[in-house]
Design a protein around this nucleic acid. Structure first.
Length: 574
RNA sequence: CGGGGCGUAGCGCAGCCUGGCAGCGCACCUGCCUUGGGAGCAGGGGGUCGGCGGUUCAAAUCCGCCCGCCCCGACCA
């Protein structure tokens, strides 16, 4: 007889043999609850900033999410491929993104001094593949996808796998002959994503979104609703409008009392810089202040005016200026242009720069601005008189209660975690890279593309963020690492034998089951069981000794019922 | 990139100010005991005190440089 493998002796899903390093206390490095719980439950361990290893329990959850995605993508007719993480610079130079992707694109050279990067996304690679292989409209439509690691050298990785530098992503790309085809595929992916996140047991919301570095015409983000989310959403309950606040159009009514223009006056404001400080110092409301913001957009510097109580929306500014990124001008630039230290910039006397203003400034009279001079502000400033009339655009961030741009009812603001993002790319990449096909008339035309991403690890973290209590994780059934956990509470042979029989039987019935056969006291087993969040706990202990029945405890509700061991497999496999 | 904090056993931390044996709790190993919500007793193992350099008879502790991690900011005008 063959010797039994010492690692799998008695079956591999025994906790006494399972690599599950749980932590009794919160690790100090973790801030948000999902990160703490993933570390404590032995799902992940950090290797370096934003770089994580998935341990067996965590990997099982990751795989379950992956498999839901795979099933739904396949069902939608997409075909799975696997592309390289390492990508040659040449492809990125073709689309121009080598230059303007920014420092999160990790670049390096191989031994022959050829330039490469770690792929933060795969538009270039897929477009290269398809331009080489697809010739005819007969090959269309086509959707390809992969589930593979990505690398983005984030400024500030945080929250564990929620904002990691290396992360697992599902990315899909659609290719069509025309806009109509793209529209069909975009809708198909929208529906597929809805199915995926619903199956993962998440409460989520699809919102209109900015297209950012990926580009394209239209896009939606799928947001898991959570207070710890990094994105703010504007949602209208009345008509269903929902948008990332970065994008949400502001249709705020600006009603300003008619008042005569008063003479310009300079006021000393020593050391008074921020809006709150200036307003308090001069005894006026922040709505009477106009902030003067200097931005660097490529080589150009632009000046933007906005009412003091409002927030400037950099995404709107970036899209208006049609540049890949805008950033606040540094102190040196501010001083050179305004002649004053940061905190005292104003539009009066500025020249040689483009002057923009948010709609909130239009109609505003006798406002307060910096005087372009240290420790001084102007009162009673009026555009058209004291400085040239600026170009007005919608450049502010939507606020709670602003009117919905579609129906006018007040908007709600909530927070969300972006787990999915879909884009209509159009011909941006196909034209740049010459990815064309021959249509029915034999004309050469660029492929019309879409792209569709899901953060797999982030989805796991978001699910935990939404499903936990003070004792630990409560996994939604579809993504739980196991369906049931057998707790053997006591060292007696009879308990062990009964547990082992149950364990074998459940496995034979196809129920994913883990058995806590460790020589630990009941308290330890209960605590770990609640922490790792497996939906059902099967307790073989006191009740079994007394009655021969076991207890079935549901993790989510804490409900316990007594049940005969024989009826368990049927109950759990349903 | 700017500001702040931290780095001492696997985890959580004290010791540092005022230099003089490297500690506590949990975890781990052995034995006894115990078995329904992170038990108890006894014994034990484990440390480049983030790194390098300096000051000193003597450095976890003081000084300098570097590295790493966490938080906040990058919307200040």
């Amino acid at each position: 007889m063959k010797e039994e493998n010492f690692c799998t002796k008695g079956g591999r899903m025994r906790l006494s043999r399972y690599f599950l390093p749980t932590l009794r206390e919160d690790p100090s490095e973790a801030e948000v609850v999902s990160h703490k719980l993933m570390l404590r439950a032995g799902m992940i361990r950090r290797l370096a900033s934003g770089i994580y290893t998935w341990l067996p329990l965590g990997l099982r959850v990751l795989r379950r999410v992956e498999n839901i995605i795979r099933e739904e993508m396949d069902r939608a007719g997409a075909q799975e491929i696997l592309m390289p993480l390492v990508q040659p610079a040449e492809l990125w130079q073709e689309t121009g993104r080598w230059g303007n992707f920014g420092p999160e694109l990790l670049r390096f050279k191989d031994r022959r001094e050829h330039e490469f990067c770690l792929g933060p996304t795969h538009e270039e690679v897929i477009t290269d593949l398809v331009r080489k292989e697809v010739r005819s409209y007969r090959d269309l439509p086509l959707i390809l996808y992969q589930i593979a690691p990505k690398f983005r050298d984030e400024i500030r990785p945080r929250f564990g796998v929620m904002r990691a530098r290396e992360f697992l992503m599902k990315d899909a790309y659609s290719f069509d002959a025309d806009e109509k085809g793209l529209e069909r595929n975009y809708r198909l992916m929208y529906e597929t994503y809805t199915r995926i996140f619903r199956r993962c047991g998440l409460r989520f919301q699809a919102v209109l979104a900015d297209t950012g570095a990926i580009g394209g015409s239209e896009s939606h983000e799928f947001m898991v609703l959570a207070d710890t989310g990094e994105d703010r959403l504007a949602v209208c309950e009345a008509c269903g409008y929902a948008a990332n606040v970065e994008l949400a159009e502001v249709k705020r009514p600006y009603a300003y009392a008619e008042e005569p223009e008063r003479p310009l006056k300079k006021a000393a404001t020593p050391g008074v810089k921020s809006v709150e400080e200036v307003a308090a110092f001069l005894g006026v409301s922040p709505q009477k202040l106009v902030k003067t913001l200097l931005f660097r957009a490529g080589k150009e510097v632009v000046v933007v005016l906005i009412r003091g109580d409002l927030e400037l929306n950099e995404v709107k500014l970036r899209n208006l200026l049609r540049v890949p990124a805008v950033e606040m001008a540094d102190a040196e630039t501010v001083e050179r242009l305004t002649g004053a230290p940061v905190g005292f910039a104003g539009p009066v006397g500025l020249s040689g720069v483009r002057l923009l203003a948010d709609l909130s400034v239009r109609g505003l009279k006798n406002f307060v601005t910096g005087a372009n001079q240290a420790d001084a502000h102007y009162l009673n400033v009026n555009y058209g008189r004291d400085f040239p009339e600026p170009e007005f655009y919608d450049l502010s961030v939507a606020q709670e209660g602003d009117p919905c741009p579609r129906c006018g009812r007040p908007l709600d603001l909530t927070r969300g975690i972006e787990v999915g993002h879909i884009f209509k790319l159009g011909t941006k990449y196909s034209e740049a890279m010459g990815a064309t096909f021959l249509d029915r008339q034999g004309r050469e035309r660029p492929l019309v593309m879409g792209c569709y991403g899901i953060g797999v690890g982030r989805t796991v973290a978001a699910a935990i963020e939404q499903n936990h209590d003070e004792n630990g994780i409560i996994f939604p059934r579809e993504i739980a690492p196991f369906q049931a956990l057998i707790l053997t509470l006591g060292p007696e042979q009879a308990l062990l034998e009964a547990s082992e029989r149950l364990y074998q039987e459940l496995q034979t019935q196809g129920v994913a089951v883990l058995w806590d056969d460790r020589d630990e006291r009941p308290g330890v087993k209960f605590k770990d069981a609640d922490l790792i969040g497996i939906p059902y706990q099967i307790i073989v202990g006191k009740k079994f000794r007394e009655t021969g029945r076991v207890e079935l405890k549901e993790r989510a509700t804490g409900r316990r019922e007594e049940i005969s061991p024989e009826s368990l497999p049927e109950k759990l496999s349903s």
